[in-house]
Design a protein around this nucleic acid. Sequence first.
DNA 1: GTCCGACCGTA
DNA 2: TTACGGTCGGACG
Length: 975
Amino acid sequence: MKKGDHLFLIDGSGYIFRAYHALPPLTRKSDGLPVGAVSGFCNMLWKLLKDARDTDVGVVPTHFAVIFDYSSQTFRKDIYPEYKANRTAPPEDLIPQFGLIRQATRAFDLPCIEKEGFEADDLIATYARQATEAGGDVTIVSSDKDLMQLVSPQVWMYDGMKDKQIAIPEVIEKWGVPPEKMIDLQSLTGDSTDNIPGIPGIGPKTAALLLEEYGDLDTLLARAGEIKQNKRRENIIAYADQTKIARQLVTLRTDVPVEVDLDAFVLEPQNGPKLISFLKAMEFTTLVRRVAEATDTDASAVEPCHVETEWGADARGPDLDLGTAPEVTGTDNIEPAAAVAGGKASDLVAWRTSQALAQKIDTSSYTCIRDLKLLESWLDEALEKGVMSFDTETNSLDPMQADLIGFSIALESGKVGYVPLQHKSGQDDLLGGGFVEGQIPFDAAIKALKVVLEDRSVLKIAQNMKYDWLIMRRYGVNIVSFDDTMLLSYVLDAGANAHGMDALAERWLGHKTIVYKDVAGTGKNAVTFDMVDLDKATAYAGEDADVTLRLWQVLKPRLIADGLTSVYERLERPLVAVLARMEERGISVDRQILSRLSGELAQAAAGYEEEIYELAGEKLNIASPKQLGDILFGKLNLPGGAKTKTGQWSTSAQVLEDLAAEGHELPRKIVDWRQLTKLKSTYTDALPGFINPQTKRVHTSYSMAATTTGRLSSSDPNLQNIPVRTSEGRKIRTAFVAEQGNRLISADYSQIELRVLAHVADIPQLKQAFADGIDIHAMTASEMFGVPVEGMPSEVRRRAKAINFGIIYGISAFGLANQLSISREEASQYIKTYFVRFPGIRDYMDATKEFAREHGYVETIFGRRAHYPEIKASNAQIRAFNERAAINAPIQGSAADIIRRAMVRMEDALDAAGLSARMLLQVHDELIFETPEEEVEKTIPVIRDIMENAAMPAVSLSVPLQVDARAAHNWDEAH
DNA sequence: GTCCGACCGTA
DNA sequence: TTACGGTCGGACG
């Protein structure tokens, strides 16, 4: 740097906030990413640089740098902890733009400067000093008054948004003092935006007057007694110390030990393709064209670069385990830019929604792709666009068994292709099941498809991606970079809408999808998809891809508009592959054990049947509640109590138990018979049928979008309801075994829902009890009934336990009375006592109900929403039910979120520890692993650590989480 | 063949 | 009193 050189310093952080508020909001059209500030920044930089390079008149930079704040932790906080303490978190749609603007800076080939502990202003002050000392001139691109103290004959400011120079006369005009007195002026007035205290009653005008009269701040303070106005004099004397602190805060440091030298700021010629690559990724089409012209670059030959977006910080604090959003690249042709430019996130949503409804779906327009060259051209286009929807067609709903019959892709709404691969000809064919002519050879098609599915720069959109992910895995394809419309809908509308494709198409596109039965037949006429003729298959499969892409266009922008991006990014999308791998691994189930159990159960049940017929006086179908009710309460005239809502006699276990307690023999036998036959039919007989013939293991299927609260559900088979409460039932668990040389590890959260309750409702006694690790139900009983924990009767503890659970479920006197078989009055009294002892619980319940009524949903501690559209129902029963569910959802849902977070982190943690344990199952608060015997000891602490710290750092719970873990040969012993 | 209610297994 | 899925019987077409 030498005389004649000119340094431009851009206040990047200041620009971000100013542009965000001053410029019309703008979102990237392909996915709704907010980019308004990025756009303003790029346009401004381009203008500055273009002038600099094109002309030899005016102010021309030779050196250029963009300066950012590193974080809010600076030396000023050490001087004055309240500094900027009034700042609120940035708006959600501004968050991803911080990182993008840094990437933009690098795309412009400009230095991107920040330093821990210092503000951008201090770095600017330091570099400005260095430059002027070397004889150069400086332009600071900012309009922040905090920087005006730096203005001098060699340094001036430039407001990039108003295109206005700020030199010494402009400072005097605006503030009434020259730049060198700005520090004194700001020390007197303070600054409410930075929470810097000033002297009450002194604003810029008075401050300027005083400085005019007394020269500077020190003189003013020394001679404050001479001030005539009483109030003003008193305040200046009283707050003199405060102004000295303020002076320290507003004075910019010119001695920051910077690491990058001024010489590194020398401006080089623009690298056109590099910049264009970034601008293309941002979809700034106008600027792309300008830059291309100015740098003589062929923009069409430039690939959009990958951009990383940070959805990390939200109102709940920063997070570390953040999956980055998939890189979405040029999709200029999804819709006209003009229609969305300048719109807010919510405008984009409204526009997309109306477009989606307006555009009709024509399933006859789809292309059946039967030629490899044609397929390759479609896939090339997908690579170019960076977005496509994708759907597999198979011959089974079980992804572990299904064969791939074909797949469909959509590149734009209506631009849809179906690729048949393994369709067979009709049953009339003498050879039976020969492949239909003119399908692309299977391996060649997969090979071509694999390139796109495994390319990170192409976003694959599917409805229920876990299924397609598993199918493709079986053909050696690892899908990366995807969105899932089912999960988008789930995050946005759990409890408010269904998330199946048919329902979503109806709701958002006003389109009724082709019914599968109409394509493949029904009942005994049903055929698998490989037997469907190609025209029908193309329409059906193509529609799925078409609908999926259109749904994504509507749903994805709603994430940002509703502030739900982090829920989707952290709790849903990363879990897809984790669950898919768990399903893929399966668990080993010992067929012999089940078979033996089944025999024993059959024998025992048969014995009961004889006795039951005897006692009933006739043969009947014991499994028929109708017949049972008629005999018990009609023929035998037992004192029947309850009726079901359809008017039938209730024969529930509760009713039968009550009768048994009165000494009746038959009801007891029926209860026992029911237990045996339930175990037999639901478990010992059904489970062997789920053993996969190839893997010899049982592969459950997890649904990520089945519950309102965020819990998973398991089906085919349901492995989340394997018996555990009775010793008979537990025998079933002994059939779930580890492979030779391995062990099963079961790790479960202890009392996680009560811990979450203690945290969210902020109950001191509960928190203390968990901190001390004491028996929570005994503590509750002791508080409520005044009984010491020492030697407490088990019945007292049992009641307290029922109440604790009742609280989590949104207690009612009716329900508690039922649960404990006590009167409504007594139950009501218990609840009253509970609320007296733990008043915070009632406050929490009232607040939650109120929140639900106001918003129509409730939230977990991680921001997941559960909707209760009927919370205001006029029917009191429906309303009360919704209120209880709304009270329960944040507790159950927060616990569900915590274990989801643990699962998302678990595989990497085990890998990093060099352990080979495989996560197999999740049962709401429990995770089951299989691991080599010799690794058990090392594995358990790793699992426990991940699970116990799963809420961190997004949420710091005020209660410790406790995980119990054990290893054994089978699930019964491990649990 | 399909749907729904009753019942019961889990957290 | 919360959240699920599976099995069965029985009614409907």
